[in-house]
Simulated assay, not measured.
Amino acid sequence: MRLIDFILNVLWLVLCGFWMALGYVVGGLIACITIIGIPFGVAAFRIAGFVLWPFGRTAVRRPDAGAPSTVGNVVWFVFAGLWLAIGHIVTSIPLFCSIIGIPFGWANLKLIPISIMPLGAEVVPTDQKFAAWR
């Protein structure tokens, strides 16, 4: 991990990463209450780790993900994805109000696609400066 990624991740953690990750963990715990919700809970925990430390990593679609992940993403969007995406938008607004927060606001907005469609995606290391959906 590059030094700049480490510094950006620490600042991210302080400004909004901890609270957004906490939201994903709570959602994952709620989803894991039922047996049917366990895959959604696992996806929420995976995203929580990504949201907690996003710089230097990116989310990519798995080519082997099929129809079950598509159906699961529709269910996820209805019950959690929309609200998590709204949370990313709401937390990015105050970040855009300061000079130092602008890159973090953009990173927050770039996390929306995985918050809407987490199934069939995985988080991998990258050389990009900001978390992005590929």
Rank of each mutant, 00 (worst) to 15 (best):
I4S: 15
D5H: 12
F6H: 11
F6K: 12
F6P: 00
I7W: 15
L8C: 13
N9D: 06
V10G: 02
L11E: 02
W12M: 07
W12I: 07
L15Y: 09
G17K: 08
L22S: 11
G23V: 01
Y24W: 14
Y24F: 15
G27R: 12
L29I: 14
G37P: 07
I38Y: 07
P39F: 04
V42Y: 08
A44S: 07
F45S: 09
G49S: 05
V51Y: 10
L52M: 05
L52T: 03
P54Q: 11
F55G: 01
G56I: 08
G56H: 08
V60H: 00
R61D: 10
A67G: 05
P68W: 15
G72M: 03
N73W: 03
N73H: 08
N73F: 09
F77I: 10
F77K: 06
F79D: 01
G87L: 02
I89Q: 00
T91R: 02
I93G: 03
F96E: 02
F96C: 00
I100D: 02
P103M: 05
F104N: 03
F104C: 07
W106R: 02
I112M: 13
P113N: 06
I116F: 15
P118F: 13
P125N: 05
T126C: 13
Q128S: 13
F130T: 12
